[in-house]
């Protein structure tokens, strides 16, 4: 059992590119718009427009496409399952018959369509997380959500929770590794036995981890209070966000592309 050293959270790849310099709020919003459009678009032409748009974005961001593919890998199974389910369950013109199952022409079309939709969804979100640092992402989310203050969305609290989670996940992972090693040194065995036995074996790891996490939370709260923390009220931001001309052009272009993809039916 081994965790990689120097764990970094998220998949952010630093590059000096136009895309990296965009305001995180603009990137989050455009990603949301692209996701929505992927659910609304009904034509292959629309998908190809969005695919082209995403391809250009990734190209401009100078992030190697292999990182995008890496993000798709864990979800490939889900895509394949979706594909197969649609192949067999859509009624229509039967083109192939195995045992009691029928593959229909409509099924293949529909399955492929949904698979491509999933694929593009993953590419769009990967593009966002690959080109936006976790800090920028949290800052962006906080500021976008604070627009919703009037319906009592706790924007600052959500952002603070994300920040602390990002800050502590590596620490907790290191700690898990230490506890596992300590338990293994005492002869604990995590690899054999049936499922219930194995889950039982993990209790001596999870319990100390939880107790320590609460302890950490306690100390962190005290340290934050000592540093004048008293919630989001009257708080300023170290990182200033600014909508530049480039942001505006990017946003308008995206809107335009989405409209074309949605409206033009060939």
């Amino acid at each position: 059992m081994k965790f990689s050293r120097n764990i970094t959270i998220g998949q952010y790849i630093y590059q000096n590119s136009l895309i990296h310099k965009l305001d995180p709020r603009v990137k989050i919003l455009t990603t949301i718009l692209v996701i929505i459009s992927l659910f609304l678009i009904k034509s292959w032409f629309g998908f190809s427009i969005i695919a082209l748009y995403l391809f250009i974005n990734i190209f401009l961001s100078k992030v190697h496409p292999k990182f995008v593919l890496k993000g798709i890998k864990p979800l490939i199974i889900i895509i394949i399952i979706t594909l197969i389910i649609h192949f067999f369950t859509t009624p229509g013109e039967v083109i192939y018959h195995i045992w009691i199952l029928n593959i229909t022409k409509e099924g293949i079309q529909r399955g492929l369509f949904i698979a491509v939709r999933l694929f593009l969804l993953i590419v769009a979100t990967s593009w966002l997380t690959l080109t936006t640092s976790p800090i920028a992402l949290t800052d962006g989310i906080e500021r976008l959500l604070s627009v919703l203050k009037f319906i009592k969305v706790p924007a600052h609290e959500i952002a603070m929770m994300m920040t602390i989670a990002l800050r502590f996940i590596p620490t907790l992972m290191e700690e898990t590794e230490k506890i596992i090693k300590a338990q293994m040194a005492r002869g604990a065995d995590f690899e054999s036995g049936n499922l219930i036995k194995r889950i039982q074996n993990f209790l001596p790891i999870i319990i100390p981890l939880f107790i320590n996490a609460f302890h950490r939370a306690d100390e962190l709260a005290i340290a934050m209070e000592a540093r004048c923390y008293r919630g989001g009220e009257g708080r300023t931001h170290y990182r200033k966000l600014m909508i530049s001309i480039a942001d505006q052009i990017f946003f308008i272009t995206t809107l335009f592309v989405i409209l074309i993809a949605y409206l033009v039916v060939l």
Partner: peptide, 18 residues
């Protein structure tokens, strides 16, 4: 258990933001 932010400079700024 004392550092709050995800980078060194952001953490140093934490109190100032507050």
């Amino acid at each position: 258990n004392q550092l709050v932010a995800t980078t060194v400079e952001d953490d140093i700024a934490f109190g100032l933001e507050n």
